[in-house]
């Protein structure tokens, strides 16, 4: 019983974000409350990945807003793309997009995914995410902080 008492006394100690402004939500055709995303690293330096993994830590607890990652896009709601789109990842990115069932959302995380962040001239770079796919949401930053990512993704999960 001591544990239950402790839980009720302590309450939630993870960071609670401010309530969501309904006016800022996106993609009303997607179901609200849950968002399953397939993460595609299209050529990232892994800075965004570190911040993404931070989102799932107890402090930011992205899953408490109904957002989680999935291994297969077949049962996902969309793609979470990081990094510039390199030539090697061009095809896999398009394959993953084709494998996602409709309706689907594409979210570009980080400056590289949005505007190549000064790497466009690189010989292995094929372009930005929006050069390949219709991007619904851009999360700028190099890298974006976990709280920025959480706040942006909540606009899609509407929770």
């Amino acid at each position: 019983m001591g544990l239950v008492k402790r839980i009720t006394r302590l309450g939630r100690i993870t960071q609670t974000q401010p309530p969501l402004d309904p006016a800022t939500t996106l993609r009303s055709d997607l179901r609200s409350g849950s968002l399953l995303l397939r993460h595609v690293d299209a050529g990232s330096c892994n800075g965004c990945e570190i911040e993404l993994s931070g989102c799932f830590s107890p402090k930011y607890d992205l899953e408490s807003y109904g957002i989680s990652l999935t291994a297969s896009p077949r049962h996902g709601d969309g793609l979470l793309v990081t990094g510039v789109v390199t030539r090697n990842m061009q095809k896999p990115l398009m394959d993953a997009w084709a494998a996602t069932p409709e309706p689907k959302v594409v979210i570009a995380v980080g400056d590289c995914a949005i505007d190549c962040n000064g790497l466009r001239a690189g010989y292995g770079v094929a372009g930005t995410v929006s050069d390949h796919l219709a991007v619904d949401l851009e999360i700028p930053g190099c890298p974006p902080t976990p709280s920025e990512i959480v706040a942006a993704l909540r606009r899609v999960s509407k929770r």
């Binding site: 291994a71 077949r74 095809k91 896999p92 990115l93 394959d95 993953a96 084709a98 494998a99």
Partner: peptide
């Protein structure tokens, strides 16, 4: 009809 999902590989 769609191809089997193979984590981006073919």
């Amino acid at each position: 009809p769609a191809e089997l999902w193979a984590c981006g590989a073919r």
